[in-house]
C-alpha cells in the first residue's frame, strides 16, 4: 500500500534505535579476540584465540557456571509448578482475589530487585537461616514465577473455555481433562515460560548478591571481575559465551510462542 510507507525520518530513527541496542553487544564479540590484556584499548592491537583456551582451563569459571545452571534449573522447576497453578486458578474463575493474586505475582519483578534482595536477606537473618544454595533458589524462584505465569495465563484462558467443557462432556474427569486437553495445549507456552525463567535466573545478579553467601554464580563472578578486574580477557570471553548461551532460550521461546497471543518476553 502506498499510504503505508514509513517516512524516511522514522525509518532512520527506528534503525538507529535498533543499532543502539545491538552494537554494544557486538563489541563484546570483538573484545573476546583481542590480544590486549591490560586495558580496553580500541581498536584491538591484534586478534587471538588463546583466551578461549585460558578460560576453558579456569576452574572458578566452571564452578560458577555449574552453580548458575543448577540454580536456574531448580528455580525454573519451582516457578513452573507455582506459575502454572496460579495461572490455572486465575484463568478459571473471576474469584474475588484474582487481582490481588496477579499483583502478588508481578510484585517481585515490579519492585526494584534490591528491595526483593534486601528483604530476603534480612528475613534470612531474622530467621537464622544460613546462606546456601537453597537461599539463592528461594529468591530466584520467587521472581521467576511471573514469567511462567504470564506465558501460561493467556493460553489457559483460551483452553479453559469450551475445550475443557467439551472434554468433560465427553466423559473425561478433571484429571483426564488436564492430562489430555489442557496440558497438550499449554505445553508450548509452559516450555517458553520455562526457558525464559531459566534465562532470567541464569542472568540474575542483584537479588543474588543478597541471598548468596560465599557461593559464586556466574553473574556474581562477572560482577567481581567488573568491580575488581583481574584478568580482563577471560571476562571478555565469558561475556561473549553468556550472550550466545542466553540467545538460545530466547530464540526457542520466540519460535514456540510465535503466532499466538502470548508475547514471550512480557514477563520480564
Amino acid at each position: 500500500m502506498h499510504s503505508d510507507r514509513a517516512p524516511l525520518g522514522l525509518k532512520v530513527a527506528a534503525g538507529l534505535g535498533l543499532a543502539f541496542m545491538h552494537l554494544p553487544i557486538l563489541l563484546i564479540f570483538v573484545y573476546a579476540f583481542t590480544t590486549e590484556d591490560k586495558s580496553y584499548q580500541w581498536p584491538p592491537p591484534g586478534l587471538t584465540l588463546k583466551w578461549f583456551a585460558v578460560t576453558w582451563g579456569r576452574p572458578d569459571v566452571w564452578q560458577a557456571l555449574w552453580l548458575s545452571v543448577k540454580v536456574a534449573s531448580i528455580s525454573t522447576v519451582i516457578a513452573l509448578v507455582l506459575g502454572t497453578l496460579c495461572a490455572a486458578a486465575v484463568s478459571r474463575t473471576k474469584f474475588f482475589g484474582r487481582e490481588v493474586i496477579s499483583l502478588l505475582v508481578i510484585l517481585p519483578i515490579a519492585l526494584p530487585g534490591i528491595i526483593t534482595g534486601i528483604s530476603l536477606r534480612s528475613a534470612f537473618n531474622l530467621a537464622d537461616i544460613p546462606f546456601s544454595f537453597w537461599t539463592i533458589v528461594l529468591g530466584h524462584a520467587t521472581f521467576c514465577v511471573v514469567v511462567v505465569y504470564n506465558n501460561a495465563v493467556a493460553r489457559f484462558r483460551r483452553v479453559s473455555g469450551s475445550l475443557v467443557e467439551a472434554s468433560m462432556d465427553l466423559g473425561a474427569n478433571s484429571f483426564q481433562t488436564f492430562r489430555y486437553v489442557i496440558l497438550p495445549n499449554i505445553s508450548t507456552a509452559l516450555l517458553a515460560g520455562g526457558m525464559l525463567a531459566f534465562a532470567l535466573s541464569f542472568d540474575e545478579v542483584i537479588v543474588t548478591t543478597f541471598t548468596a553467601g560465599q557461593q559464586q554464580t556466574l553473574p556474581i563472578w562477572m560482577l567481581e571481575e567488573l568491580v575488581r578486574p583481574r584478568e580482563r580477557p577471560v571476562t571478555n570471553v565469558v561475556a561473549m559465551v553468556v550472550v550466545l548461551v542466553t540467545f538460545l532460550p530466547i530464540l526457542g521461546a520466540y519460535y514456540l510462542t510465535r503466532g499466538t497471543d502470548t508475547v514471550a518476553g512480557q514477563g520480564k
Binding site: 473455555g161 469450551s162 475445550l163 467443557e165 467439551a166 472434554s167 462432556d169 465427553l170 486437553v181 497438550p184 495445549n185
Partner: peptide
C-alpha cells in the same frame, strides 16, 4: 453429549 456452537474440536 453436546455439539458446541464453536465445535470445540481439540486442536492438538
Amino acid at each position: 453429549n453436546t455439539v458446541f456452537q464453536d465445535y470445540a474440536l481439540f486442536p492438538h
